[in-house]
Nucleic acid binder design. Structure first.
Length: 882
RNA sequence: GCCCGCGUGGUGAAAUGGUAGACACAGGGGACUUAAAAUCCCCAGGCCGCAGGGCCGUGCCGGUUCAAGUCCGGCCGCGGGCACCA
């Protein structure tokens, strides 16, 4: 061994692994399998630190499990459809296909030097016709199975660009390119019946014990199970063909205090009234401009208009309630009408105060009767309340009990049917875009909407399309749209909508088990490899991607594409934190934020303060940003610097638009892949965000160099060196094996690495025999190999390891070496640490008590006081209470 | 607005309810060197004290407990998701 030269050894060992083909997943029924998967990337063209972190974590697991003797599947692919390719096409004229495959080639080339143990023979991109053709085939199966249907749904419509906009493309209610106010437009679209599975998807969360609790809670809330009842309010006079308004409510126990009805601006009554009332029509139109996202609707100021209509209260028919149109009522949820109860709902109270609607209460708190002002009375449902003149005779109960009792009573008295509902809505998959999987259906004037014949799959995207004008190029393609009806053979039109890219990512994990099968999956392969044993990805996917995948696995099972055991496809989930970085922000003349690249920024110290400015501004006032040489005549300019401050926002999510993306290739180039891998694992616990810092990589590199030097030194030791401390080193080695193993098992890579630092420090200070030192070094190489596989191989080879370190069985710690004979017990007096004693590890508690009380320091603090209580926690602590 | 999470030294962090700050970065001191870099050794939560040592300390307020960073309640701040970003 000579110097530590990562570039040399990394290339060498990567080649050795490739030649031995040790990462090819083998279907070996004799061995247990382990499927580790990282969420596959969108091919943006550049890998970023988040990718490095994600794939390194997966690689640690994959290499560790392989060393444990599992047959490991660790694949990689590309989530390749989506808007960015079309945006690039519009911006630069490059074709989405060329753009995407070009990016894939670039990213793959950037991933190669990381030395990941990936089985590249299974690689695919979702935009490969071979992949999306199988997706189309499954779509048809699911359509035939009744899992897919069409219905009208609203989209954001840009009236200038004449195109549908994603929520992301709507900025302050305006189209991102046209800047025109966005409209809401109804289109007939395809939907998956995910809501049919609401109950099952919710119930099955309990079985996902290896998922983070928070993800299960988020999914449960998203599915949103509620028990409620539909309450019918008869209209005083019929309108729009309706004689009553039906409102779904989860709080019928507050029905007594209902004071108004609010209906959606899209409700049929609202539409009917708007037809003859221009002012009301304008209001409804205004409501629709808010947008389609739940966030915007919830945040918008609550506005309403009195329709002049009234309904009578179902329990107290003499009471007439006004019917309002409210911008907060969604047509998609429930019935598009709700009853307002200002006494016990904050939003309703705000609304009632604003429009001077009556406010009353249905219950009080047991202790008293607070006057309602601007805060609604909404106690936790588990706490007791005292009902006021409850129509079902309920007096005091928790509101949870009150709700149930009210529903039961109303059910029994024919006032409605108690029901369980879910918030989860069906999954709309139609996208009016080119770069996605074509929906394989045909519109025929006589036969209606019919699926394409399977033998005609894949329905391939045409290459000859243009992006010079906005909108879906498939719509205006001269010939692609034209086809013949697969049923009657008459001239017909292809569906020009493509599928939501969430479809592509909802089954790729299954495809990896047989990536080139002529059917969507190969059941024998799926039966062996599924489920994914460890799935790793960003927490931003906690709800949508993971929920859709759970649903899709069930839909695939229902259509015979997955075995029953795979309906929950991810056994264990780990959600990693993001890699963040500072952002540099200034504001333009219009008040909009402008972001700057790190290389355009200069930080300089002036009078002890760090000033962050744009290099270009320095140049403007005559200061060279590189040398910081200040010409005489520019001295006054320094005083201007404070006003030029760039706003520095720490820990911001890395994104292209914020210009704070760090390129991992630079670190790999200067320090090597092992340094990059070690750093992203060492600096923060995996589930937490980690802020990228340049100094971290340097420090890591120093450490690896130290390990290398240490290994060289041990290699140079005379073979017969006796030394001393072999026993201590053996114990330290066993402890390192134990703790590093625990760290990896527990997804605490940062802790595993801390233990490796500790062990390395012990090893470098040890003066044990050559034999013991070499054995310890060999174990160190193995323990490091999941994180830093290249340097581990070199060390392994130099201290006599047989074969490849990557194929060596994981070391085991002798439990006998892990326990110490004597331990140090701290002694607390009234909870404060005052002394410590050294005792045999297995000493009986009674003996520990004696020694503790006899201790000189303890006696000093006791000062003759009586001991009220003495707590001995074996092996941990003694607490004396006086 | 709603749902979820996070908050510990100058920094990243560690701590089955049981010695808060392991491990590392930045920093300080020293060795080596003509010098610097590199390397090695030592110090290091804050305050008081020459020292032995003492007091305070895990975003804030309160509670449970012999014992709370950890559990409970209420706040504050930051981050993620909100169904067409992936």
């Amino acid at each position: 061994m000579s110097r530590y030269e990562p570039a040399v050894i990394e290339a060498k060992w990567q080649q050795a692994w490739a030649e031995a083909q040790i990462f090819a997943a083998r279907h070996d029924p004799a061995r247990p399998k382990y499927y580790v998967l990282e969420m596959f990337p969108y091919p943006s063209g550049r890998i970023h630190m988040g990718h490095v972190r994600n794939y390194t974590m997966g690689d640690v697991v994959a290499r560790y499990k392989a060393a444990q003797g599992f047959s490991v599947l660790h694949p990689m692919g590309w989530d390749a459809f989506g808007m960015p390719a079309e945006n690039a096409a519009m911006a630069t004229g490059v074709h989405p296909k060329d753009y995407t495959y070009g990016n894939i080639a670039e990213m793959k080339a950037q991933m190669a030097p990381l030395g990941l143990s990936i089985d590249w023979s299974r690689e695919f991109a979702t935009c490969d016709p071979e992949y999306y053709g199988q997706q189309q085939s499954m779509f048809i199966d699911m359509l035939n199975k009744g899992l897919v249907y069409r219905k009208a749904a609203v989209v954001n419509w840009d009236p200038v660009d004449m195109t549908v906009l994603a929520n992301e493309q709507v900025i302050d209610g305006k189209g991102w390119r046209s800047n025109a106010p966005v409209e809401r437009r109804e289109l007939t679209q395809w939907f998956f019946k995910i809501s049919d599975y609401s109950g099952e998807l919710l119930a099955a969360l309990d079985g996902l014990t290896q998922w983070p609790e928070k993800v299960r809670i988020m999914q449960a809330n998203w599915i949103g199970k509620s028990r409620g009842i539909e309450v019918t309010f008869p209209l005083t006079a019929p309108v729009a063909g309706l004689t009553a308004l039906v409102c779904y409510s989860t709080r019928p126990d507050t029905l007594r205090a209902a004071s108004f009805i609010a209906i959606s601006p899209d409700h049929s009554i609202a539409k009917e009234l708007a037809a003859t009332d221009p002012e009301l029509a304008a209001f409804c139109e205004e409501c629709r401009r808010i947008g389609t996202s739940e966030e915007l609707l919830e945040k918008a100021e609550k506005l309403g208009r009195d329709t002049g209509l009234t309904v009578s209260h179902p329990i107290y028919p003499d009471r007439k309630l006004p019917v309002w149109i409210g911008n907060f009522v969604l047509m998609d949820y429930g019935t598009g009408a709700v009853f307002g109860c200002p006494g016990h709902d904050q939003r309703d109270l705000d609304f009632a105060r604003k429009y001077r609607l009556p406010v009353s209460k249905a219950f009080d708190l047991p202790g008293g009767t607070p006057e309602l002002a601007d805060v609604a009375l909404v106690p936790p449902k588990t706490e007791p309340v005292v009902y006021i003149d409850h129509f079902a005779g309920i007096t005091a109960a928790t509101s949870a009990e009150g709700i149930d009792a009210t529903i039961d009573w109303m059910d029994a008295h024919g006032l409605g049917k108690g029901q369980t509902r879910y918030r989860l809505r069906d999954w709309g998959i139609s996208r009016q875009r080119y770069w996605g999987c074509p929906i394989p259906v045909i519109h025929c004037d006589t036969c209606g909407v019919v699926p394409e014949k399977k033998e005609n799959l894949p329905v391939e995207l045409p290459y000859d399309v243009t992006f010079d004008i906005p909108g879906n190029p498939l719509d205006r393609h001269p010939t692609w749209r034209d086809c013949t009806c697969p049923v009657c053979g008459a001239a017909a039109r292809r569906e020009t909508d493509t599928m939501d890219t969430f479809m592509d990512s909802s089954w790729y994990f299954a495809r990896f088990t047989a990536p080139h099968a002529k059917t969507p999956t190969d059941l024998a392969e799926a039966a062996y490899w599924m489920n994914v044993d460890q799935y790793i990805g960003g927490v931003e996917h906690a709800i949508l991607h993971l929920l859709y995948s759970r649903f899709f696995a069930r839909a695939m099972h229902a259509t015979g594409h997955l075995p029953a055991k795979a309906i929950e496809p991810f056994n264990a989930l780990f959600t990693q934190g993001m890699v963040t970085h500072e952002i540099y922000k200034t504001t333009d003349d219009n008040g909009r934020a402008v972001f700057h690249l790190p290389e355009d920024i200069r930080k300089l110290a002036i009078d002890g303060n760090v000033v962050t400015v744009l290099k270009s501004r320095l140049t403007d006032i005559g200061i060279d940003p590189e040398t910081l040489e200040i010409p005489e005549d520019a001295l006054d300019a320094i005083t201007l610097l404070a006003e030029m401050q760039v706003e520095v926002v720490p820990s911001a999510k890395m994104s292209k638009s914020k210009k704070n993306v760090v390129d991992p290739m630079n670190i790999i180039g200067s320090f090597g892949a092992d340094t990059a891998r070690w750093f992203v694992l060492s600096d923060s616990p995996p589930e937490r965000d980690v802020e990228w810092t340049a100094s971290g990589a340097e420090a890591t590199n120093k450490h690896l160099t130290r390990v290398w030097t240490l290994c060289t030194r041990i290699g140079d030791m005379p073979a017969d060196h006796k030394g001393e401390g072999d026993d201590a080193l053996t114990r330290a080695t066993a402890r390192a094996v134990h703790e590093v193993t625990q760290g990896i098992e527990g997804f605490a890579f940062n802790k595993a690495i801390a233990k490796l630092y500790e062990f390395t420090n012990i090893l470098s200070k040890s003066n044990a025999s050559t034999r013991a030192m070499q054995a310890a070094m060999q174990t160190l190489a193995q323990l490091m190999s999941p994180m830093t596989p290249h340097i581990a191989e070199s060390i392994w080879a130099s201290v006599g390891g047989v074969g490849l370190c990557a194929q060596a069985p994981w070391p085991k710690a002798d439990p006998a070496l892990l326990v110490d004979d004597t331990i140090i017990l701290p002694i607390q007096i009234n909870g404060k640490r005052r002394a410590e004693i050294s005792v045999p590890a297995d000493l009986a508690a009674a003996e520990v008590e004696k020694i503790a009380l006899a201790n000189e320091d303890v006696q000093k603090f006791l000062a003759g006081a009586t001991v009220k209580k003495l707590i001995v926690v074996p092996g941990r602590i003694v607490n004396v209470v006086i």
